[in-house]
């Protein structure tokens, strides 16, 4: 038996020297340990060994098997490593500088900015409402306290429709519906397309987007408005901003303000964006007029609130460096395709 084992060992050592690849190595394993392999045959001989020697012979066989298997495995390992190396170094070098297929889709810059701003508001607990583009005279004017004889109601300024309605002139047209829909405390914004009957040039559009917001609760003060606007604008511009209020005049708020923000592009030092003034006029706002609250079914003796409007087109132009507002409604794909999804 020992002789036979030695013979096999010798045979293996010889054979291994000649092995060139993994396949041959695996074949050798089968030759030894397969169903009728050389070593398997040796094990079959055990049944002929006298019972008292069976243990000893078994032990010898097992030791020899381990040894031979070890030799084959080592060789296998070596071969597979060689083969992987061969595969690696014979592989085609991929030119990763070649262009990959690009995402060519784009959102309109207004959509991108609008969503960014909406996310700031939703993070502050505001609901984002949807409004109509055609509104009744009541919603657009009367409900928000625009007097009967106000010039805004004139044909020259407003797109009146032949059914008696108007293309909404401001997002405030949604205020009445929203004040009626919710019970205080109310926090809502309502972005939308607005229209003015005016001549179009680089800085005037007859079709433009606004985003308006209202906050209604007990004892809302001008101090609250300042706090809120500062927090909100800091988030939008992604840095702490300074704001200031100046007197403004709108029928739907009393008092009314123009809110300026210290130019976030030059920190108030003066640049082309702020026309060297250091401040950007950004946001008309004010304390909601008691008549507007009353029209919305809220008691001004109990509640007060503030409202503010952001010109989405202006915000879009500020953040994209566009200087002609007409581009926004132009369908100029050369321009629009440059915008991404965020």
């Amino acid at each position: 038996m020992q002789n036979k084992i030695n013979e096999i060992k010798k045979y293996i050592l010889e054979k291994i020297k000649g092995i060139k690849n993994l396949k041959e190595c695996q074949a050798l394993r089968v030759e030894m340990f397969g169903k009728s392999g050389k070593f398997t045959e040796l094990f079959k001989l055990i049944k002929d060994v006298p019972a008292e020697e069976k243990g000893k012979v078994g032990q010898i066989l097992n030791t020899a098997k381990q040894e031979i298997e070890g030799l084959i495995s080592d060789n296998e390992r070596k071969m597979s490593e060689e083969e992987i190396n061969k595969e690696i170094y014979s592989a085609e070098k991929i030119d990763i500088t070649l262009p990959a297929e690009k995402c060519t889709g784009s959102l309109h810059p207004r959509t991108i900015i609008q969503r960014e701003i909406e996310e700031v508001f939703t993070s502050m607990g505001f609901v984002v409402e949807d409004g109509n583009e055609v509104e009744t005279e009541y919603n657009n004017f009367t409900a928000v306290n625009v007097p009967e004889n106000h010039p805004a109601r004139d044909m020259q300024d407003t797109f009146w429709l032949d059914n008696g309605e108007v293309l909404k002139t401001h997002t405030s047209a949604s205020q009445n519906r929203i004040l009626k829909k919710y019970t205080p405390p109310i926090r809502a914004i309502f972005p939308g397309r607005c229209f003015r009957n005016e001549d179009v040039d680089a800085s005037h559009e007859n079709t433009f987007f606004q985003l308006e917001g209202v906050i209604v609760d007990k004892d809302v003060s001008v101090g609250n408005l300042i706090y809120f606007m500062k927090e909100m604008l800091s988030k939008i511009f992604n840095k702490p901003v300074e704001v200031r209020l100046r007197p403004g005049f709108f029928p739907f708020t009393e008092p009314s303000f123009e809110m300026d923000v210290k130019c976030p592009f030059c920190d108030g030092k003066g640049c082309p964006t702020c026309k060297n003034g250091g401040w950007i006029e950004l946001c008309p706002c004010g304390m909601i007029h008691p008549q507007v609250l009353r029209n919305g079914g809220l008691d001004p003796e109990v509640y007060s609130g503030c409202a503010f409007g952001l010109g989405l087109d202006r915000m879009t132009m500020l953040s994209t460096n566009l200087n002609d507002i007409r581009e926004l409604n132009s369908g100029n794909l050369k321009l629009l395709k440059q915008f991404k999804i965020k």
Partner: peptide
Amino acid sequence: ALASRFNLNEVHSYV
């Protein structure tokens, strides 16, 4: 989805 999955370009037009 239209912009990111289907490579479409969004436009805004007049009414």
